[in-house]
């Protein structure tokens, strides 16, 4: 039972990371209508900036602002130089232009930081584990990640639902032309939303440092998952991104944790492990396909 609980927490923690990326991606798509494959690159930029600063200074508390600033700066530059030209283009152009950005970012980072993965230690204050229920000790760092994610989710909810800027964002997601007609400086709104999305992606990247190896390609791996989340949740919907992220995070984690074991009951060890790994990787895609077949616009469509 504690094993299941532990994996559930792992799933929530993964889901929270996915949410940080998905929230930005879904707003960017909902408001600007742009499919941004390079969103994962911002996550990578945040992770690398933080890892490098942490290695130089030894302090993750300095690494955090560095990662956020790098991701936000790169994100805004990306919006100004490239994405702005894509708002009125079709999906194909958007996919390819941002695919090109991925190639550029990956190679640039390889040249700057090398091919070797970087490892980052969690800050001392968050090291170690605590016992949350009898028999289950859980890493404090992961709990902190979950907490940060939930705080961001609540903050975003308040921002989007309780402030004037949020009202514009919501209106922008459902009635793009109306917001334009209201005479709102749409460019400023776009850049701000993009900056916010980049900031959140950078935050996810910084937090991923102590959990994963920081390496080229980390962006694409999580990007595809993030798209799954956005599409399951409903494009343009923060609420959808939140629930979608938790569902995807938990389903993916549980499948990976338990499917090989279940298969081992019916076949030999190595084969079960290989098949289990493959099938559990397929799980979320299957989930997404099923959701789309039942609700072609996702669970919480913003453009109702």
């Amino acid at each position: 039972m504690t094993l299941v609980l532990e994996q559930l927490l792992n799933g929530v923690q993964y889901g929270v990371m996915l949410f940080l990326l998905a929230a930005g991606l879904t707003l960017i798509f909902g408001i600007m209508g742009v499919i941004n494959l390079a969103h994962g690159s911002l996550y990578m930029v945040g992770a690398y900036a933080a890892a490098v600063v942490a290695a130089k200074t030894g302090s993750l508390w300095l690494a955090l602002p560095a990662g956020l600033a790098a991701a936000a700066a790169v994100g805004m530059a990306m919006e100004l130089v490239v994405l702005r030209r894509l708002y009125d283009r079709d999906h194909l152009d958007q996919v390819l232009a941002t695919f090109a950005l991925i190639l550029i970012f990956n190679q640039a980072v390889t040249i700057l930081a090398g091919r070797q993965p970087l490892f980052v230690a969690a800050p001392a204050a968050l090291n170690g584990s605590i016992e949350i229920v009898a028999g289950l000790t859980y890493p404090i760092y992961r709990l902190a990640v979950i907490a940060v994610g939930l705080v961001v989710a609540i903050g975003l909810y308040l921002l989007v639902n309780r402030t004037r800027a949020g009202m514009l964002v919501r209106a922008g997601a459902t009635h793009r032309d109306m917001v334009r007609a209201l005479g709102v400086d749409i460019r400023l709104l776009y850049t701000a939303v993009f900056g916010l999305g980049a900031l959140l992606a950078g935050l996810a990247g910084v937090m991923a440092g102590p959990l994963l190896a920081v390496q080229v390609g980390m962006g694409e791996q999580i990007l595809i998952m993030t798209f799954v989340v956005v599409v399951i949740g409903g494009v343009g919907s923060i609420r959808g991104a939140f629930f979608g992220a938790l569902v995807v995070g938990v389903v993916d984690t549980l499948l990976r944790a338990f499917l090989p074991g279940l298969l081992r009951q019916v076949m030999s060890g190595p084969e079960a492990d290989a098949l289990g790994a493959g099938l559990s990787s397929m799980g979320v895609y299957l989930l997404m396909a099923i959701v789309l077949l039942i609700r072609p616009k996702g669970l919480f469509p913003a453009h109702a």
Partner: peptide, 12 residues
């Protein structure tokens, strides 16, 4: 965008 992503999902 859903079509783009679902075809990607099946390929994955």
């Amino acid at each position: 965008v859903q079509f783009i992503m679902i075809t990607l999902a099946f390929a994955q």
